[in-house]
Design a protein around this nucleic acid. Structure first.
Length: 335
RNA sequence: GGCUGGAUAGCUCAGUUGGUAGAGCAGGGGACUGAAAAUCCCCGUGUCAGGGGUUCGACUCCCUUUCCAGCCA
């Protein structure tokens, strides 16, 4: 595990005031359309490192316009951890964690500062921390299918009651209607652990390397306006054709990638279920709600230092981040 | 100009024999450890268009003004 040496200099001061150290990794987080990618690229250019995407949908190849991957021609720094899987594949955070760690550690090994950039809270954590995932069969396992069938047969409440009998501690943490997570809890039981045990480590945040986390926030109305414009721009620049091509190769049957905002709505449009205008409307609304959830996630992370993105240009924000880097960050052993 | 409907939450509307109002959508807040752009939970006070009247009490009945639809001139 990589980060222990960096932290070993930090004596455990009882008042929590640890040493101030220079960050080795920068992370840019925030809601969709807040300008993360541009800032990350600018920072990466200045720092000489790569941008490491932490986005659950950008990992899929050929899903470019709808996931707002920075076009190749506009990338000034290398963009890593995108295009890792086929849209038909079932990908997962655990897969992402190892690939992101490798990308980050390679950059650090070359003396570079990687700039993690992403809107998927769980993926950002996976990139920055060592999360414990029980080993064993991961993807498309029959265990999951079995419990999904059982859930469908019993109904949410009885299914949840069953979990309460086998693993009461986990059952209290999960709402009965959240069938997906109840299924996951059963899976973990079969692997000899429990959702509740994993959950305990949830609020212990230990970075693998000293990391400066920067969050972009913005007036809500302004953010929503940016989202609306961006969605229209996506359609203008060929989102429908992109989705049409992916549907031809089976996107509509994929497990994960077809759930991506922008794709599921255009799939519906192409299937004749709604007008294009309606699809655009739906994408915009889904994006707004997603942005809200992203904000909820990142607001809960005490490591994040926020910048009002509506008040500065990309270059000015990069200046601020560089100043923060020069000052250094508290090398908490965990927040 | 006349007649008939409307005017209630940001939007579309409901409101039962008069007891000061509630749904959907939009929106807001939260959770989150192997599908996470997923999944799930919680949140409804608004001059009931303005004014007057009847009544113990009016969104609800009566009169009037304004505005909007449609019909007749």
């Amino acid at each position: 595990m990589g980060g222990t040496d960096a932290r070993s200099t930090c004596g455990l001061s009882d008042d929590g005031a640890c040493d101030v150290v220079a960050p080795q990794v920068v992370a840019v987080v925030g809601p969709t359309a807040s300008g993360k990618s541009a800032l990350a690229d600018e920072l990466a250019v200045r720092l000489g490192g790569p941008v490491v995407s932490a986005d659950a949908m950008q990992v899929y190849r050929r899903m470019d316009i709808g996931t707002a991957k920075t076009p190749v021609a506009e990338r000034r720094a290398p963009l890593l951890c995108i295009d890792l899987a086929e849209p038909s594949e079932t990908y997962s955070v655990a897969c992402f964690m190892s690939q992101a760690h490798e990308a980050i550690d390679t950059a650090l090994g070359a003396g570079r500062v990687p700039v993690v950039c992403g809107g998927t809270g769980l993926y950002v954590r996976a990139a920055l921390e060592d999360m414990d995932f029980p080993s064993g069969e991961q993807l498309d396992n029959p265990v999951r299918a079995r419990y999904e069938a059982l859930a469908a047969e019993l109904g949410p409440d009885a299914f949840h009651d069953l979990l309460a009998q086998r693993d009461p501690a986990s059952a209290v943490l999960i709402h009965a209607n959240n069938v997906r997570r109840v299924v996951r809890a059963f899976e973990l039981l079969e692997q000899g652990t429990s959702y509740a045990v994993q959950h305990e480590g949830l609020h212990v945040r230990v970075d693998r390397h000293p990391t400066l986390m920067v969050g972009l926030e913005m007036d809500r109305a302004q953010l929503y306006e940016r989202i609306n414009v961006r969605v229209e721009r996506m359609v203008e620049t060929g989102l429908v054709d992109e989705v049409r091509g992916l549907v031809a190769e089976g996107l509509a049957d994929s497990l994960t990638s077809r759930q991506a905002i922008g794709y599921r709505e255009i799939i519906a449009y192409l299937a004749g279920e709604c007008s294009l205008a309606q699809a655009v409307d739906d994408i915009q609304r889904a994006s707004r709600r997603y942005a809200k959830r992203q904000l909820t996630w990142f607001r809960g992370d005490p490591r994040v230092r926020w910048i009002d993105a509506s008040g500065y240009t990309c270059e000015q924000m990069a200046d601020i981040v560089e100043q923060w880097m020069a000052v250094g960050i508290s090398n908490h052993a965990g927040v």
